[in-house]
Design a protein around this nucleic acid. Structure first.
Lengths: 331, 331
DNA sequence: TTGAAAGCGCTAACAG
DNA sequence: CTGTTAGCGCTTTCAA
């Protein structure tokens, strides 16, 4: 690979001049520029980003840390966010390093440490369930950080979130308005802010309509297909007439149960799930869901991060995006 | 951030010694090691990977370039591969840079150029439809490359592929054995090796059973939900009794059509789709599909790549993974 | 309008 | 068993 020195020699100028031509960082005579450009062309020169990063302390790379669980298809939501982020980043000449915390605090810490010695210009992180993960300490301030999707307890910083309470509230209210009084609630493990907020939204909706909150109608478990299936079973046996499932993986499990038992949807059991994907349209009946704006979330996160990267010292921003209730045939 | 020099001073040794302690590259007395370790601890030292890369020409980063199309949920298949790759890589202390060619030759070339100036140790690429993409030229040999999923015409190199012909052949044969003679075939744009091979598998299965190959039963279009819907409609109107859909996005569209028109599956129309995801289980009836080993593919690709990274000069390898026919209720 | 040269933080040859 | 030191390829200050 040709280096800047080779170009300088071939163009009969100094490396400084070549550098300035490349970066447009000071005036260079047209004539000289031409010489440099043709030298670059001839040598098929491409600047070495690593060297540039070392010197200028800028890598044009940002990190993304998400909590995917091990299964193949576990969580499309974060994949969609990643996809969104990647698109915006490309427009700005940045690269993405993708990393996975496996929804595990220790892995998350390790991954953050990798990033710490990696010269990323910024990090977008969807934090793991926030018990004792010491973000203030690990994220030592060498680069800006934007948190997405989940709000770590007691932390102050840029956050791009989805309004989980509103989304759930709206969905459950709809169920109530359609006459349901026994409404089951299935959620992934509590303690994660998103789950907690969705639960709150559920309770709130019930309270607002003077409906009792029945512990037996609220089921929690790891966010897996099997658990979704199992908890739907339990709620069905508890005679609820409607089901709200607070994440997409468990939604699949729940629907699977209903189909297997040939429970008529929505006559015998209404159901509203979480997250919107094409396949929600092809269950029968098509699923009503709370759609989270994954792409927009990714976009907002990058935009905020890039502001910081460019030096913004504004007050931390907390953006709450609305979800959208999409009504199809299942309720 | 503390540098190796700071550590050296604090530990009262040379930077060389610190470096060797970190990397285990030569013998260092226990006593000295201890001094170095405690200095590192005290300073919260973390090696600067950029500097290390610049010097050692090794980045412990590999690139992945896949052709996702712009939509949110476009192709889970590549997402699954990415997920698989990432997991293996992590075990070996490598990082992943994810990049997207948007299924577009020009974007792909640009992205490769980015990688060329980026010090990746290797690249895994799922090439775009291979007309005039000059891989030999763009991939100038600075790092090893493994191709996955699609085989660029006339190219020689490490390839990890899925046996598309076998998968399709098996599926269509099953349809035939169940008595179907008019079997529709829906595919994404031809010209991509995977699509072409699936078409071949379809034709072969028909030929093997002395069934005519009817052009009217074979429909091609961009791999979108809408096209899947539309082409299923056309084939339904052409009175086929079974449908084979050669990718997951179009499968969703096709199923959507059948549900909307209340076509009974499998009585009025049998259907087999491509790729296996949890949601295939919750259509009614559950979908039979050809399952591609996405995770295994990712794994095999990384393993081959890491061999090359470590200097293997063996003959190019061409691994063909089998797909698996998963029979559920839709045929 | 341009050049010389000092490093960024690290590795590794060479020299003890 | 350990230290000295020359770079990796680039940016940027200082000087002309």
């Amino acid at each position: 690979m040709a280096s800047i020195k080779d170009v300088a020699i071939k163009a009969q100028v100094s490396t400084a001049t070549v550098s300035h031509v490349i970066n447009g960082t000071r005036f260079v005579a047209e004539e000289t520029k031409d010489k440099v450009f043709s030298a670059m062309e001839e040598l098929d020169y491409r600047p070495n980003r690593i060297a540039r990063s070392l010197r200028s302390r800028k890598s044009y790379t940002i990190g993304l840390l998400v909590p995917l669980v091990a299964e193949d298809t576990s969580n499309f939501f974060f994949m969609s966010i990643a996809n969104g982020i990647e698109q915006v980043l490309k427009d700005n000449g940045y690269n993405l390093i993708l990393s996975n915390s496996n929804e595990d605090v220790d892995t998350e810490r390790d991954q953050i440490r990798v990033f710490n010695s990696q010269f990323i210009d910024g990090l977008i992180i969807a934090p793991v369930n926030g018990e004792d993960c010491n973000y203030e300490k690990e994220l030592s301030g060498d680069y800006p950080v934007v948190f997405i999707d989940r709000h770590p307890a007691g932390l102050n910083g840029d956050m791009i979130l989805v309004d989980n309470r509103q989304g759930t509230h709206e969905a459950v209210t709809t169920l109530i308005k359609r006459g349901h009084e026994k409404i089951g609630f299935i959620t992934g493990s509590l303690g994660i802010t998103t789950s907690d907020e969705r639960l709150e939204g559920y309770k709130e909706a019930l309270e607002n309509h003077q409906l009792p909150i029945d512990e037996n109608y609220m089921k929690e478990g790891p966010a897996t297909f099997q658990q979704g299936y199992q908890l739907a079973k339990e709620l069905h046996e508890a005679k609820v007439t409607a089901l709200f499932v607070a994440n997409n993986v468990m939604t699949m499990g729940a629907v699977s149960y209903l189909q297997e038992k040939e429970v008529k949807v929505p006559e015998e059991m209404a159901i509203i799930g979480y997250d919107d994907y094409d396949w929600m349209k092809i269950t029968s009946p098509p699923l009503s869901v709370v759609r989270q704006p994954a792409f927009e979330l990714g976009k907002a996160a990058v935009e905020q991060l890039l502001k910081r990267v460019e030096g913004s010292q504004d007050e931390p921003v907390e953006i709450m995006l609305d979800s959208e209730l999409i009504l199809r045939g299942s309720c």
